[in-house]
């Protein structure tokens, strides 16, 4: 039981629960330059990601939708992490985040990921990786389409 609770703490960290309870940058983004939607057909979770750029740099990102704590916290953290990054930096972040939740040790040690590292525990829950990457998949579309 204590082992199990400790493992749970690795996925349900206070930081994740905090983003779930009080999501940052949630709601529509007026003047967005790009928008992408994702659904998880397994559970009906939905994410809409909207991004506004200043030239090559992300000015603001916001999300809306509904879902589990992992998908919502991941989207919330994404919007914070994205602000001020260039497109190339954002693309690199998408790749590094994917590596993180797939259990890559290098990504887990990358301090450049900041708060996002709280989601590394997802790697031990294969059924939940898709929850964590839902918003990131939307961001990938935004970056490729923009």
């Amino acid at each position: 039981m204590t082992v199990s609770d400790a493992q749970l703490a690795a996925i349900y960290q206070e930081l994740i629960l905090d983003h779930y309870r009080r999501p940052r940058n949630k709601g529509a983004l007026a003047g967005a330059d790009a928008r992408a939607e994702r659904r998880n057909p397994l559970c009906g979770d939905e994410i809409v990601l909207e991004v506004a750029f200043d030239g090559d740099v992300v000015r603001e990102a916001r999300f809306s939708g509904r879902g589990c704590s992992i998908s919502q916290a991941s989207a919330s953290m994404l919007t914070q992490a994205l602000r001020g990054r260039t497109r190339a930096e954002a693309e690199a972040l998408v790749r590094q985040f994917s590596a993180l939740v797939h259990g890559d040790a290098g990504a887990a040690g990358d301090e450049g990921l900041g708060e996002l590292r709280a989601l590394q525990g997802v790697a031990r829950f294969p059924a939940r990786i898709r929850c964590a990457t839902l918003a990131w998949s939307a961001l990938d579309e935004v970056l490729r389409g923009a």
Binding site: S4, L8, Y12, C43, S69
Partner: peptide, 14 residues
């Protein structure tokens, strides 16, 4: 306030 997927993960740990 708790999504079914979160419940399933918490239960799976047990």
């Amino acid at each position: 306030d708790v999504h079914p997927h979160d419940l399933a993960t918490i239960l799976d740990e047990r």
